[in-house]
């Protein structure tokens, strides 16, 4: 389990810096699929480790995209919000640590709202930090929305590509 997460960490960082950072559709499409790592962390991961690994993956992506600290800040906030979002989505329910978060275990609607909320949060913080004191609010919000939808589509796509029959 641990090894699978480490491999996912490395693969997503490489995918992000070498392929996704080079996508430029009309200059503002900028997906951040590496957040999939945070979304898919097992429920029984120690909370401090969730934060720390989120910080690390953000930091590595930052190193290669000249945006030191921005992805790290957004990822840490996302990891911090994750338990709260999980609570909100199914109140009073205990999550089975053996079942990884995903469509196969929890259904499409649950996974869609789970990733949409967290990805929006991450992108909102990230693009706000990046545009700080430069762009006006509306065009930044537009970027946030467009990229949230795009990243979520990629996340769902990855779910369907690597789905496991249980």
């Amino acid at each position: 389990m641990t090894i699978r997460n480490v491999i996912r960490f490395i693969v997503l960082v490489l995918l992000q810096i070498f392929i996704l950072n080079n996508i430029n559709f009309r200059g503002y499409l900028d997906p951040y699929l590496y957040v999939l790592f945070i979304l898919l962390l097992p429920f029984d991961t120690p909370k401090w480790l969730q934060l720390l690994s989120a910080f690390l993956i953000g930091f590595f992506v930052d190193l290669f995209s000249h945006s030191l600290g921005m992805n790290a800040a957004a990822s840490v906030l996302m990891a911090f919000a994750r338990p709260t979002v999980l609570q909100l989505l199914s109140p009073g329910r205990e999550y089975d640590p053996g079942v990884p978060p995903g469509i196969s275990g929890f259904g499409f609607r649950w996974f869609l709202s789970y990733s949409l909320i967290l990805i929006f949060l991450h992108h909102f913080v990230l693009f706000m930090l990046e545009a700080f004191g430069f762009n006006d609010f509306l065009s930044t919000l537009y970027r946030v929305l467009v990229n949230t939808v795009f990243t979520t589509l990629l996340v769902l796509l990855s779910q369907f590509l690597f789905i496991r029959k249980r």
């Binding site: 401090w48 934060l51 600290g69 800040a73 840490v76």
Partner: peptide, 19 residues
């Protein structure tokens, strides 16, 4: 520890940005 670590990591990130 969850909240404290969160604050610490965010402070580190913001220091990185605010340079």
């Amino acid at each position: 520890h969850f909240f404290i670590l969160f604050v610490i990591l965010e402070i580190i990130s913001i220091i990185l940005i605010s340079n």
